[in-house]
Design a protein around this nucleic acid. Structure first.
Lengths: 174, 174
DNA sequence: CGACATCTATCTATCGATAGATAGAATCAT
DNA sequence: ATGATTCTATCTATCGATAGATAGATGTCG
């Protein structure tokens, strides 16, 4: 069993915690204990909390973009499906909030470097949906879909009802 | 100029901060300084942070319900309009996140009493939309609208674009 | 009425715990 | 043995929370 590099383990632990409790809801010590090292070692890899959370948001964005792939080569409607799948996994598989949805809600309380990285995530998704072929003319505007996905995540998790996530994505009442 | 009761001033300050930074993003001292008293005086009115934030969520729910009124006496489509107006004011007038959207995102890191009060807010809105007359048959399912509003709030604020809020509410691409 | 008691709301001061962050020694790997 | 990494140890600041004192309003009762 090959150990993941410490830097990645730190990011994994920090992402998990940030997606549960938000920027101010976890500490260097929390992350260090999760990984099994000392908090000063976390500071070695990420000098400040802003650095750590900026890296978090960037990695989150890159991973999402990788999974989404090139939007120009998709069948009509598939872009929408792929973005939806990202958020469906967050609630059904990971049972966590979207990292950037969480940070975005707290944007007034974030270091600028983190807020910028979070903006980049949203812009990436919006651009992707804008370029991806639509299923029908005028269907699904990017901002509307993304907003609904972020909100559905909050709703389904708060009311403890994963099925509410799907409800919130359908046009007609449940 | 009649001073508002200390309890209300405390709730006002705490709500403002909670809607900017989340549950862990503000302290008793922050609130106390905003009001111009000592943190121990805040504890007098709200013994624990859970008590304070539960009161926050309850007041938030009552105020929203008051403003929404009785859904049964509304014209078709007006319920939807009224709920939308609530969130539009949050982004355009108050420039703050929805308190319960913020807390909901952090539900894993909240005292149970707060999480329960937040659930009650969402349930109140969903019930309201469910009872209010729809504009057309099968139009707008409650969970979909509420999700989109919460998400639109996050999106518009993160990307620093109030107009994105309206974009996210329209069906067709901007 | 006047004296005593209670209540309300705030204060000062402090608690133990934890926050983010840093310096410098020790250790590990190449 | 050099550079990368982790450690021990510590700092300052702040966290939520509590204790005890106080001032002033209110209430009770002889």
């Amino acid at each position: 069993m090959i150990e993941a590099p410490a830097r990645e383990q730190i990011l994994d632990a920090a992402e998990k915690r940030a997606r549960m409790a938000g920027y101010h809801g976890f500490s260097f010590r929390d992350v260090a204990e999760d990984v099994g090292i000392k908090s000063s070692s976390v500071h070695y890899h990420f000098p400040t909390k802003g650095d750590l959370c900026e890296a978090l948001a960037r990695r989150y964005t890159v991973r999402a973009a990788d999974r989404l792939g090139d939007p120009r080569i998709l069948a009509p409607g598939e872009g929408l499906e792929r973005v939806t799948a990202l958020f469906r996994d967050a609630v059904l598989v990971e049972d966590r909030m979207c990292l950037c949805g969480m940070f975005g809600a707290q944007r007034d309380a974030l270091p600028a470097q983190v807020a910028t990285a979070v903006s980049a995530f949203f812009q990436m998704i919006l651009d992707y949906l804008d370029v991806a072929p639509r299923a029908s003319r005028g269907s699904q505007n990017p901002a509307a879909l993304l907003a609904r996905l972020e909100g559905a995540l909050i709703l389904a998790r708060t009311l403890n009802s994963p099925s509410l996530f799907e409800d919130a994505l359908s046009e007609t009442a449940a």
